Amino acid sequence: MRFSTRTAACWLVAACALAGLGLVDLRLGEFSGDDPLRLVWAVATSAVALVAAWAGPLGVGVLSAAQVLGAAVTWWVTRHDPSTGLPFPLSATAALLGVLALLVWRGDHRWMAFVVPAAAVAIMVQPVRGDLDDLSGFRPVLGVLVLSLGVAVAVTGGLAARLTATTRARQAERARVAQRVEFARDLHDFVAHHVTGMVVRAQGAAAVADHRPELVLPALREIERAGTEAVDAMRRLVGLLRAPSDDEAPGLAEVPTLVERFRRTSGLPGALDLRGPFTDVAPMTSTAAYRVVMEALTNAHKHARDATTVDVVLHRTATHLEIHVTDNGRPAPEHRDGFGLRGLRERVAAAGGDLSAGPGPHGWAVGASLPIGARG
Rank of each mutant, 00 (worst) to 15 (best):
V68F: 12
A300P: 00
P82S: 07
V313I: 08
T309G: 10
A349H: 11
G340T: 06
G33H: 11
L58G: 06
S32A: 13
R106T: 14
H301I: 01
G270L: 10
V153W: 11
T156D: 08
M284I: 10
R2C: 09
A357S: 11
V128T: 12
T257E: 10
R225T: 12
D34T: 15
A71K: 01
A349W: 02
R316D: 00
G353D: 03
A296C: 11
T265S: 14
G20S: 14
E222R: 14
P89Q: 07
A44T: 13
E182R: 15
G130A: 07
L69S: 13
P89Y: 05
A175H: 11
R225V: 08
V62C: 02
L272F: 13
R345V: 03
A55L: 02
P57T: 01
P361I: 02
T167C: 06
F339N: 02
D108V: 05
A152Y: 13
F88Q: 06
A169G: 07
P218K: 11
L240Y: 00
G158S: 07
V51R: 11
T164W: 11
E322N: 07
L268V: 14
E322I: 00
L215G: 07
D131L: 12
L341W: 03
V281D: 01
I123E: 05
D35E: 13
H320Q: 14
D280C: 02
A178L: 09
T319F: 09
P333M: 05
S4L: 03
I372P: 00
A72T: 14
D273C: 11
V259Q: 05
L142C: 01
R347S: 08
A205F: 08
R291T: 08
S83W: 09
G20A: 15
A178D: 10
L145Y: 09
T298W: 04
R263C: 07
E182V: 10
L355C: 00
R347I: 12
G137Y: 07
R174L: 12
D280N: 13
S286L: 05
R291S: 13
V68T: 12
M112S: 05
A350M: 12
P359L: 12
A289T: 02
Q67S: 03
A350F: 14
V293M: 06
L321R: 03
R168C: 07
P250C: 03
G107K: 03
D273V: 15
P361A: 14
T196R: 10
H194I: 03
P361R: 11
M112C: 13
L217Q: 14
A349P: 01
L341V: 06
V155F: 01
R330D: 13
G22E: 00
L50C: 06
G352I: 07
V62W: 10
G59K: 02
V13I: 15
H362A: 12
A172S: 10
L147Y: 03
G251F: 04
V155R: 07
G130F: 09
A300K: 01
I372G: 08
L37H: 13
R212D: 15
H301V: 05
E346S: 08
A120N: 06
T5L: 15
M1W: 15
R345I: 04
G340C: 00
V293Q: 01
H324S: 14
L21S: 04
L220N: 05
G143V: 00
D133I: 09
V62R: 11
V195S: 03
D189Y: 09
V121W: 11
